[in-house]
Simulated assay, not measured.
Amino acid sequence: MSGPNKSYDPVQVTPLNAEHVEAMVAEALAAFAAATTVAELKQARIAHAGDRSPLALANREIGALPPQARKDVGQRIGRARGEVNQALKTREAEVTAAELARVLVEERVDVTLPVELTPQGAVHPITALMDRMCDVFVAMGWEVAEGPELEAEWLNFDALNFIPDHPARTMQDTLFADPADSGVVLRTHTSPVQARSLLTRELPVYVVCPGKVYRADEYDATHVPVFHQIEGLCVDKGITLAHLRGTLDYFAQAMFGDTRTRIRPNYFPFTEPSAEVDLQCFVCHGASVGNPDNPCRTCASEGWIEWGGCGVVNPRVLQACGVDTDVYSGFAFGMGVERTLMFRNNAEDMRDMIEGDVRFSRSLVGGAR
């Protein structure tokens, strides 16, 4: 601010004369009129009505005038600033209304359209496939049986004819609950549910047992330490291996469509005779066998793919559960649910099934219907 001016000459103080004040007002009004958005108007307000605007700086010069000149100049600057502020207020209302109208048009939403308020999940393919498997047997008149995942060692091994020094009973394969001699394990298969069914149900027994099982396995593309099995048990009068074969054929066709099965000898403590169930390769249908010019990666040109185990229930298992083996006989089978899902949907990595990505579930749940 300049010092007192005792010899005031209005011509020499240019920012305060009428022509210059009118020019500042005209410049401000033109800037306001040119602004078409709230942001542009804000910049114009700072330039022409802010603390460093020409009118604000001119207003500070009034104090440097002699007393006899302050009244007229003060009124002139006051009227100018009032005109600018009023024009700014009017333009703000116009620009705000115009911008609101534009936003309402450009960002209009049809509220009558259906919307997804929350992200949708999906039934996990393993769950969906186990339900589908159970439905196949429920339609045949079987029952669904379930049991605890923390199981008594007697039901998991002894009742199923596993000898005391069987390799499967070591910590290398089985997860024992603390302490190690507690006689309680995380079940290694769903077969204990079959033993529980024989102990608690009236004969005949037709049950299918889905559930989670635990093994001390490596974690890789084809093995996980926690996976799912489904097992079936039929105990009735006159049951033979032919009944087992017919059941497996029907089950395989329900899972994979037009396919064939075969059984080949194997060994399981809880069945005698025992067998492995193979599916005809659903890619080459056996055409790659003995044909080096047309190999099949799915079945390694063998024409068959291993699916699960089966057999006639060992009489020792029936006797351990109080079943009269002179009157009753039965068959049992078991398959891995993850393995079945991989066959049905061409899934390559079992780890994808447990990582919780909903996109994986959405992509496979249709095939596990």
Rank of each mutant, 00 (worst) to 15 (best):
313 V>K: 05
158 D>F: 02
289 V>T: 07
108 R>Y: 01
204 P>D: 07
224 V>L: 04
305 I>F: 02
266 N>G: 15
120 Q>L: 08
14 T>F: 00
22 E>L: 01
67 P>R: 13
225 P>H: 04
76 R>W: 01
187 R>N: 03
192 P>C: 09
106 E>M: 01
67 P>A: 15
138 V>M: 07
105 V>N: 06
7 S>A: 14
187 R>L: 02
353 M>A: 15
237 K>Y: 00
342 M>L: 09
152 A>H: 07
255 M>Q: 11
159 A>C: 03
114 P>A: 14
67 P>W: 03
72 D>S: 13
231 E>Q: 10
226 V>L: 05
17 N>G: 11
120 Q>R: 14
358 V>P: 09
206 Y>F: 10
89 K>W: 00
74 G>D: 01
327 V>L: 07
251 F>R: 01
70 R>H: 07
357 D>H: 11
3 G>D: 14
101 A>K: 12
297 R>D: 13
250 Y>K: 08
165 D>F: 09
171 M>D: 07
368 A>I: 06
308 G>Q: 03
314 N>G: 07
104 L>M: 09
321 C>K: 07
20 H>M: 04
53 S>L: 02
27 E>P: 05
317 V>Q: 03
250 Y>C: 08
364 L>H: 14
216 A>Q: 15
20 H>A: 12
314 N>R: 11
87 A>H: 01
295 P>N: 11
195 A>M: 08
80 A>Q: 12
291 N>P: 06
347 A>L: 15
110 D>P: 07
296 C>K: 13
164 P>S: 06
29 L>K: 06
151 E>G: 13
282 F>A: 15
18 A>R: 15
26 A>H: 03
339 R>Y: 03
104 L>D: 14
44 A>L: 02
365 V>N: 08
83 E>F: 00
